[in-house]
Design a protein around this nucleic acid. Structure first.
Lengths: 124, 124
DNA sequence: ATAGGTGCAAACAGTTTGCATGTAT
DNA sequence: ATACATGCAAACTGTTTGCACCTAT
């Protein structure tokens, strides 16, 4: 849990609020370095860890991708990864009966779904 | 591309054929070490790479998990990860209209779906 | 003033690569 | 005999940790 308010901490939170999409540590560092010369990668990791503990961030893990993080507290949703620009975008809602794909022997507790293709910007 | 038939190579292929589920490099190594004393991890990695190039294996990447591999050539399917035993099992079939989850601005090319819970063995 | 936070560098895990040795052909 | 494959160790990437210095309180 973090107790003090530092410039670094503020810059890291701002990165997520401005991006409004899941960010990797590298993306967060790039943003924060524009504001604070010499900010270290370990500071990014440590603050992300604290924000996760606080429940302010959630982990977003896509298959074969670096771990990303997004602001917590949103409704159940899934993600779209653009194969052109590499960005990960949020999708709203879900698909019914997903969990039925497992047969009757299984007990399904949760699921993850990721769509891949071209985002609206890259499709043009 | 591999040209020679070695004991190591045979043991690695056998691991996949006997397991009949996606395996990580660690799982493959554990299997192969039962047969061949002193087999190295890099041999596992190299042979998996060759088997991927040959099209004999496919990559199976689940969010936040180590990369796994499975025998190629199967129909479109998804996976179930047991939260008790950690094994990843194959599910048959798919769910219709998955790709509709992205709005009209997107072009969806493929998707990945993973279910989590208890497998039939662990549920008992 | 003081202890929590930062930045650097070292430690780690999983994966890849370089190289001398071993072995299938 | 030859060159491909192996096994070891070193390199590499993403992440975590130890520690001296800095700074919000």
């Amino acid at each position: 849990m973090s107790l003090r308010n530092t410039r670094q901490k503020a810059a890291i939170r701002d990165a997520f609020e401005l991006a409004n999409r899941p960010l990797s540590t590298g993306e967060v560092l790039a943003f924060a370095q524009d504001r604070i010369r010499g900010i270290g990668l370990s500071t990014v990791y440590r603050n992300i860890r604290w924000l996760l503990d606080d429940g302010w961030l959630n982990v977003v893990e896509l298959p074969g991708e670096l771990r990303r993080y997004e602001i917590a507290g949103k409704n159940h949703h899934h993600h779209f990864r653009c194969e052109s620009c590499g960005r990960v975008l949020e999708l709203r809602g879900c698909v019914p009966a997903l969990d039925k794909l497992a047969g009757p022997g299984f007990m399904v507790r949760r699921h993850e779904l990721v769509l891949y293709g071209l985002c609206p910007s890259c499709r043009k």
